[in-house]
């Protein structure tokens, strides 16, 4: 039982990593992985929305008519996103400013609706919360890994701290979408290579 719960949590990290394996919601990944601080902020916002949405939908899953499920999912996700935006405007205006348009766009993030459709609408509450947390952590790890590379190469800084002297000319391409695709592609490749090696080791044992 405990093992099962752990499995639900950890599958979001690798086996079903929303960015590197499922490759869902890449649009917002491109946009927020420009800097590490944005990636961390987005992870927090994303966690808030996905955990609360999965929790709510799992609670009411027996009262959702099948034909109405998508509109109801959207209403619930959109409400949490709007609540999040009010809270950010009131208490963390700096984060709200730096994430800007990407907060409202969490509504249409397909990772969230995907997890709700395939998981939270069928499973009990505790499992759904763990699923939300695992997926958020996997999402966070992925976008921070992408953001680290992009910020160092594209802005010459990490967490806003300049790493090189003022004569350093950063590669502008890495903060533009093409650079993001390159970084995502290379990181997915590296992860696949690692998984292959790891799986071989496991099998040969």
């Amino acid at each position: 039982m405990k093992n099962n719960l752990l499995k639900i949590f950890t599958k979001g990290l690798f086996i079903e990593n929303p960015v590197f394996i499922l490759m869902l919601g890449l649009c917002s990944v491109l946009a927020v992985s420009v800097s590490v601080i944005n990636a961390l902020g987005m992870t927090l916002a994303f966690t808030f929305v996905i955990v609360l949405s999965e929790l709510t939908i799992s609670l009411i899953r027996n009262w959702i008519p099948k034909t109405l499920r998508i509109p109801i999912f959207i209403v619930i996700i959109a409400s949490f996103v709007t609540i999040l935006q009010f809270l950010l405007q009131a208490y963390l205006p700096a984060l709200n400013k730096s994430l800007g348009i990407f907060i409202p766009l969490i509504v249409v993030n397909c990772i969230i609706i995907g997890r709700i459709e395939s998981f939270a609408s069928k499973r009990p509450v505790v499992e759904s919360i763990l699923d939300g947390l695992g997926i958020s952590l996997g999402y966070g790890i992925a976008i921070v890994l992408i953001a680290v590379v992009r910020e160092i190469l594209g802005s010459g800084s990490i967490l806003g701290i300049q790493l090189f002297g003022s004569s350093f000319q950063p590669a502008l391409m890495f903060i533009l979408p093409p650079g993001a695709f390159l970084v995502i592609g290379i990181e997915i490749g590296a992860l696949n290579a690692f998984m292959k090696k790891y799986n071989k080791k496991v099998c040969s044992r």
Binding site: P65, T67, L68, P71, I72, V75, I76, A78, S79, T82, I83, F86, L87, Q89, A90, Y91
Partner: peptide, 28 residues
């Protein structure tokens, strides 16, 4: 029937939103 169910969900969501809005508005 479906319309009524959906409206109930929307009304609950709207209530939650208006409460949050009125609480956070002065702060914003």
């Amino acid at each position: 029937k479906l319309g009524i169910i959906l409206s109930i969900y929307c009304i609950v969501a709207a209530l939650a939103l208006s409460v949050t809005y009125s609480v956070t508005l002065p702060k914003i």
